[in-house]
Design a protein around this nucleic acid. Structure first.
Length: 255
DNA sequence: ATGGTCGGCAACCGA
């Protein structure tokens, strides 16, 4: 089984990249974030032609998540209210005995802002949701854009960025609690070295060329899945395609 | 080289 996650930064702007990648890599599941499209405008026909089922929840202009899969997902849920705000940031479902969750965690703007507090509350809620609905001994795969670098290895300038949004102790402590519960960072399980990133800010000149990036996209799995993971990679060559996203594909293969 | 990020969507917001 091959799964991937990609913050697409507009599914309509990057439809050729996604379709090309699906054809080339033929994943079983692709998690997409920041689709930036309302449901009535989601390019479902293109996905069908590519051989994929699609479940999605979008909103105008911002956010939006989708799961593309070879086999149809059951028990699909897209509602995830936090503090009475229900943005399009969450989709869960099931394929066979594998439960899947796709998340687009709030970015958080800046530390001590309302948006930052909302980000922390959102992550708390996600943790509670998982603890309430799943068991670490069952197969759960959660992937997406978490907007948090976990350790110093996961960003290009840990000292300069320490304590800022995306690398704040409170955010990192929350990620740790997902790991404590029983989720494994599949990338880090296989690749212990640093300087491996999934996001490069558009606003840093030549940030990608200079590899000034962050690892903020994750594929997490419970132990039964982590034990069956065979390889994981960040697909930088997908960035060579026209109009690259500021994120890239993160891919994992399971037995 | 006399500027310097994207995308949505129509003036700026969000990342």
């Amino acid at each position: 089984m091959k799964v991937a996650t990609f913050n697409v930064n507009s599914i309509r702007a990057r439809l050729p990249i996604v379709l090309g990648w699906l054809k080339q890599e033929a994943p079983d599941i692709l998690f997409l974030q920041e689709t930036k499209v309302q449901d009535k405008d989601f390019p479902i026909d293109s996905m069908k032609e590519a051989g994929y089922h699609a479940v999605f929840r979008g909103q105008k202009s911002y956010n939006g998540v989708a799961i593309l899969s070879r086999s149809q997902l059951a028990d699909v849920k897209t509602r995830f209210p936090v503090e009475d705000v229900d943005e399009a940031r969450f989709i869960s479902g099931r394929t066979g005995d594998i439960n899947v969750i796709n998340v687009y965690v709030p970015q958080g703007f800046e530390v001590d802002s309302d948006k930052f507090r909302f980000k922390l509350a959102w992550l708390e809620q996600l943790l509670k949701h998982i603890a309430d609905h799943y068991h670490p001994s069952a197969r759960l795969l959660m992937a997406g854009d978490f907007n948090v670098a976990f350790t110093e290895m996961d960003l290009f300038d840990p000292e300069g960025l320490r304590g800022g949004v995306g690398f704040h102790p409170d955010e990192r402590a929350l990620l740790q609690r997902f790991f404590d519960w029983g989720l494994v960072d599949i990338f880090r399980k296989h690749i212990p070295e640093g300087n491996e990133y999934t996001f490069w800010d558009y606003r840093i000149p030549n940030g990608f060329k200079r590899n000034m990036g962050w690892r903020i996209d994750y594929i997490l799995g419970t132990a039964p899945l982590a034990e069956r993971s065979r390889s994981v990679w960040i697909d930088k060559k997908a960035r060579a395609m026209s109009r690259p996203s500021d994120h890239t594909f993160l891919v994992a293969e399971f037995e």
